[in-house]
Amino acid sequence: MDRELRVDWIACEAFGMCHDLAPDLVALDDWGYPILPSPSEVAARAGDVQRIIDCCPARALSLVRRDGRTQGRRQQRSIGAVPHQGPRLRA
């Protein structure tokens, strides 16, 4: 499964450790925030990617499945189970 390297932008404090550890993988913008590699680079450099994730002082980096949706079906219940007189659908 394709995985994407993500930054938690709220957590990121622009320490720049990711860039220091892998300058050819992570660039920095004008304010010191990371510009991240593409999923194909992430896949090709799994070891380096794990290292920068582990070394981030703000714990702001993570790998996310690209289709990252939680699955699981909720059982369809009959609607209008709670009695009331407002707009009603047929159960």
Binding site: W9, I10, C12, E13, A14, D29, D30, W31, G32, Y33
Partner: peptide
């Protein structure tokens, strides 16, 4: 005011 690129980038 939570994310650096937004705060600093839009400010700049």
């Amino acid at each position: 005011g939570q994310c650096g690129p937004c705060v600093l980038g839009l400010g700049a």
